[in-house]
């Protein structure tokens, strides 16, 4: 049983990212290769595994079965299905907002999480906020479909502070990208 499609996730992310970024922006500074590199090598693999995610009740992970949609300062908030680190919602920031003075990383790892209110899967970009000491509040470590370093965009241990002025990890956000 195939549960998700890394290729489509990567494509959606890149399109969103490209659509919302000026040429003089961070993409130009980083270079397209930097953003695309984790995804391109995987294309053949991902195509081979292309399949719609299983959205049935039986297809839900242990996390998804008990996830809630009311409190985003708790580890069981539905978007946090593959988050690792301090929740920015507990550190002076928000679900897609870095705490004051911290800098969001333009690249991230991703997860596919089930919204308990509509039962649908959404692509979540876990963007780290960088440039300040480790927040250490509301530490979570959820691992739905989380993989190892050879599939880096699905790994939540990497310090995802690329293209920021400081690579120090502060906390993590869970930005909704779109339907998976």
């Amino acid at each position: 049983m195939k549960k998700f499609d890394a290729d489509a996730m990567g494509e959606t992310l890149l399109r969103r990212f490209a659509g919302g970024t000026s040429r003089r922006g961070i993409l130009a500074r980083l270079g397209a290769a930097l953003v695309a590199a984790p995804v391109f090598p995987l294309l053949p693999v991902s195509r081979a595994e292309a399949a719609k995610p299983d959205r049935s009740g039986e297809g839900k992970t242990a996390f998804a079965r008990v996830a809630q949609s009311k409190d985003n300062t708790k580890c069981d908030y539905w978007r946090y299905c593959a988050i690792d680190g301090s929740l920015c919602t507990c550190c002076g920031g928000g679900i897609h907002t870095c705490p004051p003075g911290a800098e969001p990383s333009p690249v991230s790892w991703v997860g596919t999480c089930v919204n308990p209110d509509d039962g649908k899967s959404y692509l979540i970009a876990y963007r780290d906020c960088c440039g300040k000491a480790y927040c250490m509040q509301c530490d979570c470590n959820n691992t739905d479909r989380e993989t190892q370093l050879y599939v880096p965009q699905l790994n939540n241990d990497v310090i995802w502070c690329f293209g920021t002025s400081s690579m120090e990890y502060h906390c993590s956000t869970a930005v909704l990208v779109g339907p998976a």
């Binding site: 590199a37 391109f40 090598p41 995987l42 053949p44 693999v45 190892q148 370093l149 050879y150 599939v151 880096p152």
Partner: peptide, 22 residues
């Protein structure tokens, strides 16, 4: 080394690594 990580010493060559294509 696109698409690969998790390095392993390999006396017959140099090193090996696990890759995203399995």
């Amino acid at each position: 080394l696109p698409g690969c990580a998790s390095l392993i010493p390999n006396p017959g060559a140099g090193f090996s690594a696990l890759c995203a294509d399995g």
